[in-house]
Design a protein around this nucleic acid. Sequence first.
DNA 1: GAACATTACATGCAGACGCATCTAATGCAA
DNA 2: TTGCATTAGATGCGTCTGCATGTAATGTTC
Lengths: 128, 128
Amino acid sequence: MDEQFVVDTWRYVLAKHAKAMCALERELGDRHGLGPSEFEVLDRMVHHGRKLRIQELCDEVHLSQSALSRVVARLEKASLVSRGVCDVDRRGVFVCITDEGRARHAEALPTQRAVLAEVFTEAPALTS
Amino acid sequence: MDEQFVVDTWRYVLAKHAKAMCALERELGDRHGLGPSEFEVLDRMVHHGRKLRIQELCDEVHLSQSALSRVVARLEKASLVSRGVCDVDRRGVFVCITDEGRARHAEALPTQRAVLAEVFTEAPALTS
DNA sequence: GAACATTACATGCAGACGCATCTAATGCAA
DNA sequence: TTGCATTAGATGCGTCTGCATGTAATGTTC
C-alpha cells in the first residue's frame, strides 16, 4: 500500500474541493441566490422526480440530519420546495420541489456545470 | 470535454472529502485534541522545519487569512506554536513550532495516515 | 394496552468559517 | 517629511455545520 499515493490523493481532494466549493458558493450565490447545499438538494429532487423523505436525501447529500433539516427549511422559506406530512408514517416529512424550485434549478445548472468544468479541466489528472 | 466525467469526479471528491474530513475530525479530536486545520498547520511547520509567516502558511492550507489567524491563535493557546514579531517587516508574524507541537504532531501523524489509508484504500479508483 | 425503546425530524447551542473592516507598518510619490 | 495607497495580520459579525437533545409517532414486549 503506497502511503505517498494516499497522501497525494488526499491533497488533490483537498485542493479541488476547496477550489470548487469556493467558486460554487460565489457563483451560485451571486447569480442565483443558492448555496451549494441548497443546489445539491434541488438537484437530487429533480433527478428523482418525486417526493423524497428527509432521510432519503440524507443518504445522498453529505450533510448531517440537522443540517439537512435546515437546508430544507431555507428552501421552503424561499418557496423552492414544500414540506408535507407523510401519510403512512406521520413522523416522516415529504419534501416536494415546486415549479419555482425546478425553474431555479434549471437556471443554476449551467452555472454549476461551468464551475466544475473549469475546476476539473485545467488539471484533470491526479498527477497535477 | 466529457461533462459526465467532470460530474463524476466532483461526486468522488465530495464523497471522499466528507468521509475523510469527518473521520479526521473525530479521530484527531478524540485522540490528540487537534482539529484537521490545526493538524495541517503543524504538519506544514514540521515539513518546512523553520519559522513561517502567516502568509506563507496561507498559500499551503486551504483557509482564508482570517481562519488561519485563528487556527494559529488556538495553537498558540495550546502551546503548540509560538508567535513572534518579524524583524525585517514588523507587520509580519513568524509562527514557530514548539517542542510540544512537534511531539503532538508526531503522535498524531500515524492516526492521520491510518484514517487516510482507510478512506482511500477501500475504493482507490475514481471509477468507484 | 401500558411501559419502554426506537425512529424521524426539529432545535438550542457552540465551534469554525469567510467577508468586511480595523489597526499598524511599509512603500512610494511629490 | 508629508500624504496616500498597500500590505500583514487581527477581529466583529453573520452563516453554516455537527452534536446533543427535545418532541412526537411508531414498534415491541409483557
